[in-house]
Design a protein around this nucleic acid. Structure first.
Lengths: 336, 336
DNA sequence: GTGAAAGCGCTAACAT
DNA sequence: ATGTTAGCGCTTTCAC
């Protein structure tokens, strides 16, 4: 591995000059800079991140803490985060808890603190008191993406408002018999989001003087298969069936659509279904939904931290990211 | 940030002892080790990865190069890789090309070489001649996951065999009018996989004396929505319609199923559909498919590199990972 | 505009 | 079993 000394020696200049030249610092003659850049390229020199990290205190890497990687929302956020980091020349380190309880401790008390990253993004998930404290005590910039975590800055959509918009859309279509397919529960993803959406559902129904039937609160676990099973039961009785289902996520909405198809229930004729997310499959499935853009949220959060790293002063508290109702073919007037 | 000197000073021992004790090296009295561990915890000491990386030459991090993060296969592989890395105390650094051409160069010639990682996993994707060379010249262990890349070691399923198994399953059910929904094309994912699967489809058909109709080779781009659109055309004419569709991925199979539903074509009565992957949605969708396990592939590859890092000698060339036909409700005898 | 030199916080030989 | 010491490859004052 060729080092900065090789470049310096090969040019007969000092390592300081090479360092300055390559990092675009002022106080280097343009001609010198050009020569340095040229030989660096020729020799295939790339600075060691360990060495420059140690010397400068900046690692040029950002960490993202996720409960799991391979779920729609999380991987989409990662994509957005990565986009901004790439543009800024930062590397992306992913700390995944992987549903593993044993691992959590190591992640919180070793990995994250190892001086390997300059800033940390925490994906919405349930944190213990102690973990929250650990995050808050981090000496570098950090932020939560998605659901709110008490005492930590966060960026995301206004979940309550998004859920309300969905439910009021159904109500506006004349629906009064509305069921809720709820998420939450499994592994570490039992953050605020499912709670906020459920609460907003109940509140909105109440605000419109509509009853909430407890047996129409189905558990879908934010998953297609769980939701399908639940919906199969929810929709089984043709005589006592909701005319609409508000789903706390698109994946669960797909489960409801599948169940309806299996039961021969026409959508939207006999049943309206609305989701939240605007998942990649929502458009081809014709699913009406509340669009959110996880990649945008990730990018926004990453930019915010990048800015703080640059300016050495905290940004303003971030506003909610937008959401948008997208009307498709899975919803229609009641009894149409 | 408390350093190793703080711990050493606080105990009146040398930094070397602290280092040895904490890393579990031999030659430390158990009593000393206990005291060191205790004060390290008390002081909240965590070794700086930059410093230990610089001193030891090991970064305790592994890199994964992906074309994009947020697609089923890639995020599932990442999950598997991460599982093993976590267990081994390694951190995961994700280098994503993000479909961005400009970025590729930086990734290949800076990030990857920055002495930030001890080994590299490359996800199957199209690499230019020069990029392949760059990977091959890497001085640390590396391997490709998924499709083969010439001259680089790789781990994955036997794609040709998987496709053949799928097609022969359809043929075994009596189908002769078989269409192919193919992938490939978009962004950097135009690797070997789509080509291998298509070729195997053609070869298998030929081996059984069956014709391949060019207008039944539909392009699904490995995506639900593209596949649905293509299938809508493919299946439009009730008189000249395949009785079965072999899909190079499950997501495309979902698109075919959706198109069939929209066209009122009964599955499997009038149309059999088979995929490859066993995507999370395949079971609830009742999709017959060839199961592969990307997380297993990622874990396998990570383990292999981890082993080489430990033993300092190359592993045997890895065998193909297994695939498995999973029969569900989307396939049936022809004309049933 | 450039160079010399002192670290950054560890690890690894080499001593003891 | 433990301590001493010389780096690892940079960045960053401080000189010139």
């Amino acid at each position: 591995m060729t080092s900065i000394d090789d470049v310096a020696a090969s040019l007969g200049v000092s390592t300081a000059t090479v360092s300055r030249a390559l990092r675009g610092l002022p106080g280097v003659a343009e001609e010198t800079r050009a020569r340095v850049t040229a030989t660096a390229n020729k020799l295939g020199y790339v600075p060691s991140s360990s060495a420059s990290g140690l010397a400068s205190g900046r690692t040029m890497a950002m960490g993202v803490l996720v409960p799991v990687i391979d779920r729609w929302y999380f991987s989409a956020v990662l994509e957005g985060v990565d986009r901004q980091l790439r543009a800024a020349g930062y590397d992306l380190i992913v700390f995944s808890l992987g549903g593993d309880g044993v691992n959590r401790d190591r992640v919180f008390h070793r990995s994250i603190l190892r001086k390997r990253i300059d800033a940390l993004l925490v994906m919405c998930m349930h944190l213990t008191e102690e973990e929250r404290t650990a995050v808050q005590e981090l000496e570098y910039p950090n932020i939560v993406i998605g659901g709110a975590v008490e005492g930590v800055r966060h960026v995301g959509i206004d979940d309550a408002r998004a859920a309300r918009d969905a439910v009021e859309y159904l109500i506006g279509l004349g629906h009064t018999q509305i069921a809720h397919m709820r998420g939450g529960g499994s592994f570490d993803i039992d953050f605020e989001v499912p709670r906020l959406r459920e609460q907003a559902f109940r509140q909105t129904m109440a605000d419109h003087g509509l009853p909430v039937r407890e047996d129409w609160s189905a558990f879908g676990d934010f998953r297609f298969s769980t939701s399908r099973s639940s919906a199969l039961k929810l929709l089984a009785d043709p005589l006592h069936r909701p005319t609409a289902v508000f789903c706390s996520s698109d994946e669960m909405a797909f489960g409801v659509l599948k169940a309806a198809a299996e039961l021969g229930i026409a959508v939207p004729g006999q049943l309206s279904v609305i989701g939240i997310d605007d998942h990649e499959f929502a458009e081809p499935m014709g699913l009406t939904t509340i669009r959110q853009d996880p990649a945008d949220q990730g990018a926004f959060a990453a930019d915010l931290l990048l800015g703080e790293l640059l300016r050495h002063e905290p940004s303003e508290y971030p506003p909610s990211r937008p959401h948008l109702l997208v009307e498709r073919q899975s919803t229609g007037p009641v009894g149409a």
